[in-house]
């Protein structure tokens, strides 16, 4: 295997809120190969956005390191390092400055990084807009004149302005119309093939994961609980949290319902209870063993499908969740 583009080693982040501490990340290891699409899924508070912020340099890790293309990113980021990472955010209605034209929005990374001469900037912005399927003339318009889908295309064009290797996509489709989501996903897929981009998806939309990602990382309370190829994880989730997550995909027929796990995954547990020691999912897990409280389970299993569970669910004999999703 060639050297991964992005490597995260034992990254931890603790926020200090008043006198209390919030451990958003508790030692996360992650590596993303060049040209790969990795999806990070998890509920709110799982630490997926914090992880993205560490990668983007918005937050500094409390411990651990982030390595991009062999160079550790620490301290102040150099411009060269910043160029390598592009960001597409969740809400296209807030990512574009309402007071600036589309051309100015895309022009900002061009001017910060001196990508091209001032005289060529207009042409370059036009090219970027065409690349994402928009008319180059749109650069004189304000974001107000654009639809949500068009704005998200502009945001993608802006992220591509510095020719990055890695795109961090934070819920890129979750605030769009369903009909527009498909177009954006197709655009992302095409761009990846054309430019050899590496994607890191932050999402809780499991159908997006299935369509776009090659590998999925499931996070829970600041820890990676399961990691593997999308097909493996979706067809045979091992960690109880992943099982619950996949089971919560809505189904419409009794036939589909029979495929859900045979344990009471729907039971409403008090999820505010935080396990200080041991497995973070323990308070919600019907299969918790005494050993689960002893120490945080480490990721184990075959290399293409790791899970951090002491009492995992078995490999499925039923029709898989992947097929379940496909059937929707």
């Amino acid at each position: 295997m060639s050297e991964p583009l992005l490597q995260i080693r034992e990254a931890a982040k603790t926020f200090h809120v008043g006198s209390s501490e919030v451990k958003a990340l508790k030692g996360v290891n992650l590596s993303v190969g060049k040209g790969e699409t990795v999806a990070i899924v998890g509920e709110s508070g799982s630490g997926k956005t914090t992880l993205a912020n560490l990668i983007l340099g918005i937050e500094k890790p409390s411990a651990g390191e982030i390595v991009l293309a062999g160079r550790p990113l620490s301290g102040r980021r150099s411009k060269a390092d910043r160029r390598q990472i592009g960001l597409v955010q969740q809400n296209p209605y807030s990512t574009l400055n309402p007071r600036k034209s589309i051309g100015q929005a895309i022009g900002l990374p061009l001017s910060v990084h001196n990508v091209c001469r001032r005289s060529e900037r207009r042409r370059r912005i036009g090219e970027l807009l065409e690349k994402v399927g928009l008319h180059p003339e749109l650069q004189d318009r304000r974001p107000l004149a654009l639809s949500g889908g068009q704005r998200q295309r502009v945001a993608i064009a802006r992220a591509l302005a510095t020719d990055p290797e890695l795109l961090v996509l934070d819920e890129p489709t979750s605030s769009l119309d369903v009909s527009v989501q498909a177009h954006i996903l197709r655009l992302l897929k095409d761009l990846q093939e054309e430019l050899g981009l590496t994607y890191l998806f932050i999402t809780h939309d499991l159908s997006v994961v299935r369509v776009l990602a090659s590998r999925v990382i499931v996070m829970y309370r600041g820890l990676v609980v399961e990691e593997g190829a999308v097909a493996d994880v979706f067809s045979g989730p091992r960690h109880r949290y992943t099982q619950q997550l996949l089971a919560s995909i809505p189904t419409v027929s009794a036939e589909d319902d029979r495929l859900k796990p045979d344990w009471s995954w729907e039971a409403d547990v008090d999820s505010t209870e935080v396990a200080e020691e041991g497995c973070p999912f323990r308070p919600r897990c019907p299969f918790a063993l005494p050993a689960c409280a002893a120490g945080t389970p480490v990721l184990a299993g075959p290399k293409h499908h790791l899970h951090a569970c002491l009492n995992p669910g078995g490999a499925p004999t039923r029709k898989s969740s992947l097929e379940l999703l496909a059937g929707q």
Partner: peptide
């Protein structure tokens, strides 16, 4: 989002304040 976007790109605080926020 647009402030975060400018910061991630590496725009200086002055540029973010006077270029993005002031308008």
């Amino acid at each position: 989002g647009f402030v975060t976007a400018a910061e991630v790109v590496g725009a200086s605080p002055l540029k973010v304040m006077f270029g993005e926020l002031l308008p």
